[in-house]
């Protein structure tokens, strides 16, 4: 399934409930190391719950979440971050009254502060020169695009193997959306696996290797991104605005 790549993250028959509400239904994902995987689906189909299940904010009722061959579904969030999973949260969720630099520091929270901290900081600053300029500014005063850069930078500061992104394009101008997706590809080429929930299906499928489609909590479709772009169901349901964008 994962094209011969060693699996990085797997969901094995995961079921998640909020009270009586059955959100994820027997969900299976298989992310290979080094892939960009995108997760498509309408509102309230379980995309955000998937992210929360990976980060340990929500515990599955049954099934297993496996990261690099070990079960993580009972581990506290901090332990998952330590093992190399970092989030880019929906709507960015920076700490508004902390400086940009402090936000980046928070990204490295679970790590000991050593020489590699400066290395990672340099890496973020190289990727986003703008973030370096703004490092002493309060994060809440930045524009949406700049906040997105800090949010991605903050995730990188955890030195992650896997970054989970929840709606990275949300609320960004088209120019910034394009830049963000460029950056995501760059980060991926440096060896970081990307799992991305995205409303902007056309954009997401243009950079993803593979995709899953969730519908009311069930995986109804999965496969290489190129195939998905041609798939009638996907075109109808998620790529409707592609023509509009092109025109």
């Amino acid at each position: 399934m994962a094209g011969g790549l060693p699996p990085m993250l797997e969901f094995r028959n995961v079921n998640t409930y909020y009270g009586d509400l059955h959100v994820l239904k027997d969900v299976n994902y298989n992310l290979g190391a080094g892939e960009i995987i995108c997760l498509l689906g309408g509102n309230a189909c379980g995309k955000s719950t998937t992210m929360k299940t990976i980060m340990g904010i929500v515990r599955p009722t049954s099934g297993e979440v496996v990261f690099e061959g070990e079960r993580i579904d009972r581990l506290p969030t901090a332990e998952r971050v330590k093992r190399g999973i970092a989030p880019v949260l929906e709507a960015r969720r920076l700490f508004p009254r902390m400086t940009v630099f402090e936000n980046l520091e928070m990204g490295a929270f679970t790590r000991k502060r050593g020489a590699d901290f400066d290395q990672d900081l340099e890496r973020v600053y190289t990727l986003f020169p703008r973030v370096k300029e703004r490092r002493e500014q309060q994060a809440g005063t930045l524009s949406g695009g700049e906040q997105q850069m800090v949010a991605i930078g903050r995730a990188l500061m955890a030195r992650p193997k896997l970054i989970c992104m929840d709606e990275p394009s949300m609320g960004l101008s088209p120019l910034f959306v394009e830049q963000t997706f460029d950056i995501i590809q760059q980060i991926n080429r440096q060896g970081v696996t990307i799992f991305m929930v995205e409303q902007n299906a056309a954009m997401a499928l243009s950079i993803a290797h593979r995709a899953y489609v969730l519908q009311t909590g069930r995986v109804v479709l999965s496969g290489p991104a190129a195939e998905m772009r041609e798939n009638e169901h996907v075109r109808d349901a998620y790529l409707g605005e592609m023509q509009v964008v092109a025109a």
């Binding site: 980060m55 969030t77 949260l89 920076l94 955890a158």
Partner: peptide, 11 residues
């Protein structure tokens, strides 16, 4: 400032 985000940083 944001308890959920702090939790996901590993706090």
């Amino acid at each position: 400032q944001d308890p959920d985000a702090a939790l996901m940083m590993g706090v």
